[in-house]
């Protein structure tokens, strides 16, 4: 018997780019992460054809979840057409045969950084968030071994210290993104760099969310219908960005998270951060048969 007889015939790539053992590793850790919501699971993060820090963690989770019938949407800062989002999306469809889409309601897997789409996600959709720094305790405990002990003991008192000092220095909570949140009443997670506006969307959501950090080799999950509560003081309520009264100058939509566009005359205009929602609204206004799904925020407010 020769070695050649024992090996499989040469193939250009495995299905979904990652080899079977890499996918098995990810699947195991993803199941574990679902079993203990918000708890960071270490995993063997593989090399993917992208630099660490560009979404390799999210990419590995997405590659593991993909099948030919999947429909993938990838957004970067809310936009489908940015270079990073477009290349990740085309890579995903190339290695798996999945369909590409920009439409939130049509997608089955959504990979994102910085934003959760404004249209409500359903139970049959999976959100994958790319996380640069998965450790919420890093600002207060630089020693990661001790931080892990603090997670085990649910010793989260120091996280309020960050908020305390922001209020002392600036009069309000300045945590703009990655707002530490308590998942299922047990583990505090950092919900990747999504703005405060998006954190309530994770609370008791119908969809499954994976958060994965490729460089830090940690992944965690928010299963459907799980409590996600941002840390707050009992006498200072949680506040989202005050974008409720802003109007998008292109689509005319109001009450969503906006990007500020500085103008030549020094003033500023706003446009929807969720770019495809804006595109849909414009098409609808032009008379095309486009359906905008139900949104999390209604009239700038998140119904409780």
């Amino acid at each position: 018997m020769t070695i050649a007889a024992l090996t499989k015939p040469w193939q250009a790539l495995s299905y979904g780019f990652l080899d079977a053992s890499a996918k098995r590793e990810l699947r195991r850790k993803m199941l574990k992460a679902i079993a203990v919501p918000g708890c960071q699971m270490p995993y063997a993060s593989r090399e993917v054809p992208m630099a660490r820090g560009w979404g390799t963690g999210g990419l590995q989770v997405t590659l593991t979840l993909l099948r030919p019938s999947s429909v993938v949407k990838v957004i970067d800062q809310g936009a489908d057409d940015s270079v990073n989002a477009a290349s990740i999306r085309s890579f995903l469809s190339k290695v798996s045969g999945a369909t590409e889409t920009w439409d939130t309601t049509a997608a089955t897997i959504l990979q994102s950084r910085h934003r959760i789409p404004e249209e409500r996600l359903r139970a049959d959709q999976v959100l994958v968030l790319q996380v640069p720094n998965p450790e919420p305790l890093r600002p207060v405990e630089p020693n990661m071994s001790i931080a892990r002990q603090m997670h085990a003991d649910a010793d989260y008192g120091r996280l309020w210290l960050i908020l305390y000092e922001q209020i002392v220095r600036s009069g309000r909570v300045m945590q703009g993104a990655a707002y530490p949140s308590l998942v299922n009443g047990r583990h505090v997670m950092t919900p990747s760099p999504i703005p405060r506006w998006d954190v309530p969307k994770l609370h008791m959501a119908q969809h499954l969310t994976f958060l994965s950090a490729g460089r830090e080799k940690r992944l965690y999950a928010v299963p459907p219908f799980t409590r996600v509560e941002p840390l707050v003081f009992s006498d200072i309520p949680y506040q989202v960005e005050d974008h409720a009264a802003l109007t998008c100058h292109r689509s005319g939509l109001r009450g969503y998270f906006m990007n500020e566009i500085p103008q030549d005359d020094g003033s500023a205009q706003f446009e929807l951060s969720d770019s495809h929602l804006g595109i849909k609204a414009i098409r609808q206004a032009e008379g095309s048969a486009v359906e905008i799904g139900p949104t999390w925020y209604e009239n700038g407010k998140m119904p409780q």
Partner: peptide, 27 residues
């Protein structure tokens, strides 16, 4: 002490560990 946090924050940390969650009380 946590050298890079405020002095009042250092004192508040003790209260936070004990479970105090009201900003006015901490202050």
């Amino acid at each position: 002490l946590l050298m890079k946090h405020t002095s009042s924050g250092n004192v508040a940390e003790r209260l936070l560990i004990a479970g105090e969650r009201s900003f006015a009380t901490l202050r």
